[in-house]
């Protein structure tokens, strides 16, 4: 049986999905805070939000890079 492979797939799924979701959620959250009118420092929050979205996008790109055989050769 390939229990180890199954575990690897489960683990990889969990790690990658949680990474993307956490980063994106943080981005959404920070955008929301930055959108609030009466916040002390909306500017920096907005930059943080963009950073989160950027990191999220990079995580996805890295995943694709790992998967597409053309790059990994």
């Amino acid at each position: 049986m390939k229990w180890l492979e199954l575990l690897t797939v489960a683990g990889a799924t969990l790690v990658s999905a949680v990474t993307v979701v956490v980063l994106y959620s943080l981005g959404v959250r920070l955008t929301a805070i930055a959108g609030d009118a009466r916040q002390a420092s909306p500017r920096s929050k907005r930059y943080f939000a963009y950073t989160c979205f950027g990191l999220c996008g990079m995580a996805v790109m890295f995943g694709l890079y790992l998967i597409i055989p053309y790059f990994s050769k």
Partner: peptide, 14 residues
């Protein structure tokens, strides 16, 4: 979750 599961599984062979 769907995307990670499919990509992980097709990449890792299960």
């Amino acid at each position: 979750s769907t995307a990670s599961a499919i990509l992980a599984s097709s990449h890792l062979g299960f």
